[in-house]
Design a protein around this nucleic acid. Structure first.
Length: 254
DNA sequence: ATGGCTATGTAGCATAGA
């Protein structure tokens, strides 16, 4: 079973990249973030033509998440039940007995921003939701753009980023609380190259200089983590013309 | 040098991302 996540920064712009990537990688599930697209405009037919079904929750201009699957998913849920949030940041499906949750965690903008307050409140809601999903389903994969670099080694210049949004202690503590629910950061189960990142700023030749952050993650409950054979960041789509600023991450499970 | 680039909404810039 292959599970992947990719913040595409506009599905409208990135659709050709996503279609090519799906055909090349053939994941069982691909979680997308930042569709920036209303549901009425979701390109369902384009995915159907290459054998993928879609569960999605979008909105105009901002946010928006989807899960593309080869098999028909069960128990599709958009948003966090009981948490009124106008921003479309969560969708969950069940696939082959695995609860697959796709999240686009708020960016937060800066630690003195109202958006940072929202981010931390949102993370507290996510923690409650995921705890319930683990209790209900057992096998849970939490994939997405977390907008959190968990450790200094996930940051190209840790000194410059100390205390800043994406790296601040409260955000990292929230990430640790998610892992304390029984989820493992699957990427770190394996030997990985130094300076492995999933996002690079469009400015300043950030990608060519590898000035990146690792903020896109695949967290797995223990049984799934035990089945996990490899986790990799695919840098190829980031080299294309008009790329997303994020690279996809893919986990291969037995 | 707190800029740099990209996408969206909307029609010359404002907002947001990370």
């Amino acid at each position: 079973m292959k599970l992947a996540t990719w913040n595409v920064n506009s599905l409208n712009v990135r659709l050709p990249h996503v279609l090519d990537w799906l055909q090349a990688q053939q994941p069982d599930a691909l979680c997308l973030q930042e569709l920036k697209m209303e549901d009425a405009k979701f390109p369902r037919e384009a995915f159907d033509a290459i054998g993928y079904q879609a569960a999605f929750s979008g909105q105009k201009t901002y946010n928006g998440v989807a899960i593309l699957t080869r098999e028909r998913p069960d128990d599709v849920v958009a948003g966090i039940p009981g948490y009124a949030d106008e921003q479309k940041r969560v969708i969950a499906v069940t696939l082959g007995g695995v609860r697959v949750i796709c999240v686009y965690i708020p960016n937060g903008q800066s630690v003195d921003s109202e958006k940072y307050v929202y981010k931390l409140a949102w993370l507290a809601e996510l923690e409650k939701f995921v705890a319930g999903e683990i209790a209900r389903y057992g096998q849970v994969a939490l994939l997405g753009d977390y907008n959190i670099a968990p450790e200094d080694r996930d940051v190209y210049d840790p000194a410059a980023w100390t205390g800043l949004v994406l790296c601040s202690e409260p955000e990292r503590a929230a990430f640790t609380r998610l892992t304390a629910l029984g989820l493992k950061d699957s990427f770190r189960q394996f030997e990985q190259a130094d300076k492995s990142y999933t996002w690079w700023d469009y400015r300043m030749n950030g990608f060519k200089r590898n000035l990146g952050l690792r903020i896109d993650h695949i967290l797995l409950t223990a049984d799934l983590a035990a089945r996990c054979q490899a986790v990799a960041i695919d840098l190829e789509p980031r080299r294309l013309e008009r790329p997303s600023d994020h690279a996809p991450v893919i986990a291969t499970l037995a």
